[in-house]
Amino acid sequence: MVEAFVTDTIVYASLFGLMALGLTLTYLTTKVPNFAYGSFVTIGMYTAFALYRIQKISPYASAPIAFALGAVASVSMYLGVLRILSKRGSSLVALMIATLAVDIAFVGIFGIYSDYLTSRYAFIDSKQFYPIPDSFTLFGTAGIVYVAPISLGIVTLAVFLLLTQSKLGVAMRASVENPSLARVVGINVERVYVFAWLLAGGFAAMSGSYYVLWLPGGITGGSNLIVEIFAASVLGGLASIYGSVLGGLIIGASEVLVTKVALDQLGSWVGIYQKGIPLIIMVVTLLVLPKGITSIDWHRMFVKAYPSFASQLRRLYHSMAKLTRGES
């Protein structure tokens, strides 16, 4: 049996990596922070909840269905709201408030759906439900502890292969880098963007259906995660897919580990401030490293920094020597 905080860290970090990857995909294409992204996660939560409670289908089996539903929601939001608005030349702020509106509308839809579940199947916990029991354990640990990181690995690898090896992926990169030039060479930029949104919504809903295997879900379950998801994406630089995966891992791990240390050292009252950790990381990233961790030039920092450091020392030594000789 592994310690609880280790498994917590693994699940949390992997799922936030998956969520941040999707958010970054939407940000890369439309350059709008998608405030409705948390609701795509909630779609996955409710898919897993409803199918498990009605049909006894394990969330692992229903994850593809969640993926499809999330993808449909995401694409219809893009085509039905954002593309119409951006074609009319709406400002960035107008697009942001539109995504917030879509999030509110989604909360309304989840409310209606949970009312339906309550009246039709008498699920009194359909607004706020406990984690769904895992369908298998391995070496005494719940299955999600293995499935979450493996899924993240597979998805990251698949996205990597897509972007580097396939024609569609190259077209995607071209459309992100320079949309007008991509149009000139005959890429259907709109279709590429739709594909990016499809993947984003799918990843969000998939991670949502895994999420409820470990933690409670509910109507605002996904919307409440936007602090972490945005923090992860910002930490990754908002423009780098791999950076966002790394950001998600760091956010998820630090939230669990810092909270554990704080709980052990300071007592149980610090528990409610857990969400402060991603917020602080986000603020610090924005103020210190606005382009995210992937913008750090490690080579320059460690390899090239030494000669300049040495020359600084040498200059200091010479000036000290001058001073001691009494020159000015």
């Binding site: 350059k31 709008v32 922070p33 405030f35 960035l92 702020v93 942001m96 917030l100 409440n224 936007i226 602090v227 945005f230 923090a231 910002v234 908002l238 528990g271 409610i272 401030y273 969400k275 402060g276 991603p278 917020l279 986000m282 603020v283 924005l286 103020l287 606005p290």
Partner: peptide, 30 residues
Amino acid sequence: SFPAIRLREDYLGMLLLAAAQFFQIILSGY
């Protein structure tokens, strides 16, 4: 105002939305 005078609109929107969310968590917990 510290982030607001430095950040672009989209970053600021995310930060303030997240901060408000956190603030409500504090109010409900403290």
